Amino acid sequence: MADPRVLRAFRRKSGPAAARCGLISTGQDLIGNLSVVTLFVFAWAQARHSLSRFGGTVRNSIFGVAMGLGAMASMVMSVEFQPGMHVDLRSTLLVLSGFFGGPPAAAIAACTALAWRIAVAGTAACAGAILIVLVVLIGLGARQAFGGRQLTRGTVWRWGSPPPLLRWQGLFSLRHPL
């Protein structure tokens, strides 16, 4: 939670509505979540050169463990909008695991993320688990479709847009139960 003095200063500058609805704290939490995701991606970018002596399956499995732990760290720092409904940036790491690491990395990262999401439980645990599986499948589908070819900006946008859209669609559909 934000410091009360910061909230008072924010109210004076931008009015009481923004401070009252918790935008400061939510924005800070999401930026922290982005920092965790970025840290795991950069750490892997540095470590992959050291791991080049290992075979492809071993290296991809280590990649899956790293991305799974990153997804778990992202979920630990998630923002809870409603009881049991968490928003985080785990989708980025899960898509990367499927796209760059293939099936071994995708399976390891998905199992790690699923285990944590189920352990956290909450009202949206089932939807969160389904979204984890869908996002990993999107990464694997993109790998299959574009395996060794050069990617264009349009291709990246087409394959990069579904995971966050699935995330927000899942949140809005859970908001109003059937």
Rank of each mutant, 00 (worst) to 15 (best):
R8H: 08
A9D: 13
A9Y: 09
S14W: 06
G15R: 05
P16Q: 04
P16G: 14
R20S: 05
R20Q: 10
I24L: 15
T26V: 12
G27K: 04
D29N: 07
L30T: 06
I31T: 08
G32K: 12
G32T: 11
F40E: 03
V41C: 12
A43V: 14
A47L: 15
L51F: 15
L51W: 07
R53V: 14
R53Y: 08
I62F: 09
I62V: 15
F63Q: 06
G64D: 02
M67K: 04
G68M: 07
G70R: 02
P83L: 09
R90K: 14
L93I: 04
L94G: 12
F100A: 10
P104D: 00
P104M: 04
A107F: 14
I108W: 01
R117A: 13
A119M: 13
V120C: 04
G128F: 00
L131D: 05
I132F: 05
L134K: 04
V135W: 01
V135C: 11
V136L: 05
V136G: 07
G139W: 02
G147A: 15
Q150P: 12
Q150I: 08
Q150E: 12
L151I: 08
W157C: 07
G160W: 01
S161R: 06
P164E: 07
L165F: 11
W168N: 05
G170Y: 00
S173Y: 09
L174P: 03
R175E: 08
